[in-house]
């Protein structure tokens, strides 16, 4: 990857039509751009979906990406959130080995990271955790590969701080 290539979070409002998602993913594969993460769900207006897309590229590539996305007929509006201050959150469910001495230790770590134990068995916990992607990474690192049984992450959600809005 290029040295000048930065991480960008692009939020997209698009028509909630079947096929809209494949137009976006098809655009990325056809033009050789990469998608690091992608989340999509309908908004408060069910005819509109909001997509949060994480990609990397030089300034020039990001400019092309946003222009090409805007060119898709189904795309109503988009915003590169990384251009200004914004809140970024990711959700994770993580299944962790919890036997013997690890049982207490895992619980303690979850508390420190403000995670919640949402499922308990003799041998495992499921912990729910929300935060920035780097906080989630840190939690996984702290537990270590021996304890982590399974993870599922939502991909980041993001919203601009203050008055800046992405709305119709």
């Amino acid at each position: 990857m290029d040295r000048n290539s930065d991480r960008h979070i692009i939020s997209i409002l698009m028509e909630n039509e079947s096929g809209a998602l494949s137009r976006v993913s098809g655009l990325f594969s056809a033009r050789g751009y990469n998608i690091e993460a992608l989340t999509v769900a309908p908004t408060e207006d069910p005819s509109v979906s909001r997509m949060t897309l994480v990609t990397r590229g030089t300034e020039q590539i990001i400019e092309q990406i946003t222009k090409q996305l805007n060119k898709l007929i189904d795309v109503i509006k988009l915003l590169d959130l990384t251009q200004d201050s914004h809140i970024e959150r990711e959700h994770m469910l993580i299944k962790v080995r919890a036997t013997g001495s690890a049982r207490e230790e895992v619980k303690r770590m979850a508390d420190i990271f403000r995670g919640t134990v949402v499922d308990v068995t003799d041998a495992s916990y499921i912990i729910e955790l929300t935060g920035s992607p780097s906080k989630l990474d840190a939690f996984i690192d702290t537990l270590g590969a021996k304890l982590v049984l399974e993870t599922v992450r939502s991909g980041p959600l993001a919203i601009a701080r203050g008055g800046r809005r992405l709305a119709i």
Partner: peptide, 11 residues
């Protein structure tokens, strides 16, 4: 007419 054509190959 197409913004995506502008500065695509040449700045």
């Amino acid at each position: 007419i197409d913004p995506a054509s502008i500065s695509k190959n040449v700045k």
